Computed example of a mutant assay.
Amino acid sequence: MPIRQIAVGRYQEETHPNTLKMALAEFISTLIFVFAGEGSGMAFSKLTDGGSTTPAGLVAAALAHAFGLFVGVAVSANISGGHVNPAVTFGLFIGGNITLLRGILYWIAQLLGSTVACLLLKFATGNMITSAFSISSGESVWNAFVLEIVMTFGLVYTVYATAVDPKSKGNVGILAPIAIGFIVGANILAGGAFDGASMNPAVSFGPALVSWDWTNHWVYWAGPLIGGAIAGVVYELVFISHTHEPLANTEF
């Protein structure tokens, strides 16, 4: 059962050099991802005079996020596990694959990475607005809430299947960054027109903080965290064989 594997961790873990390196890797990867994803929307809006909400803009956003996340996961996978997303970190915590203390450190690094990326974009583009995620007209808050749960479930489920499951080593594990990037791009094509398709509280937090627009911001935290937790519980309970070797003590 996942609940039996959940661990708080030791406070020494927070200041261990390896843990700090992992947090730094999460910071850099999230910065790369958000800079590419948010920057693509700003660039497309500038080139098309506000056309980032057009079908072409949606496709551009899906590609930029898919490519950016592929790189972000790939460059940090061997250091921190390549979470690049507080919802992924939370889903792995619920499944007993990361300690609470390390997860909190990851969250801080991810939120800082997103914020710094948005600040850099604002500076580099001559003070252009880093638009916060918003719900489209005609959609309710609860529509967006359900969308975020479902899309993030798909994302975290993909992370478990390709990167966490002990049986995913080898060719499947090598494909993990590609699969994770693809599911995010596909979800943006499916849900981007409705609520922006965040699936990632850090991606929502940076633009909201820099633009100081917190309208319905809770949806982009509650939905992804619930979706990630459900994915963690489902995959751990149903698909992972608990006859495999337990995690090394260094993980707790």
Rank of each mutant, 00 (worst) to 15 (best):
V203Q: 13
I28L: 13
G81D: 14
G82R: 06
E13I: 07
F205P: 01
L189H: 09
L31G: 07
Y235R: 11
L120K: 09
M42W: 03
V75N: 03
N127W: 04
E26I: 06
F123D: 08
G232A: 04
V59R: 01
G223L: 05
A7L: 00
P207D: 03
L120P: 04
N187M: 07
P246F: 11
L47A: 15
M199D: 01
M22V: 11
I104P: 00
E38D: 10
F33N: 09
S114G: 07
A77V: 11
W218I: 14
I178H: 06
S76H: 05
G232L: 14
A74S: 15
A144M: 02
A74M: 09
L58A: 15
L119Y: 13
V146G: 10
F252Q: 08
M151N: 07
G196H: 08
A124W: 08
G191M: 07
N97S: 11
G68P: 02
L209V: 11
F194C: 12
V73I: 11
S76R: 15
G103H: 00
N200T: 09
S29M: 12
G68I: 03
N171Q: 13
T99E: 02
G50K: 10
I108M: 07
G191F: 03
L63Q: 12
Y106E: 03
G206R: 15
G185M: 06
N143T: 12
G72M: 04
F239G: 07
H16P: 02
V71F: 14
V219L: 07
L63S: 03
I149N: 00
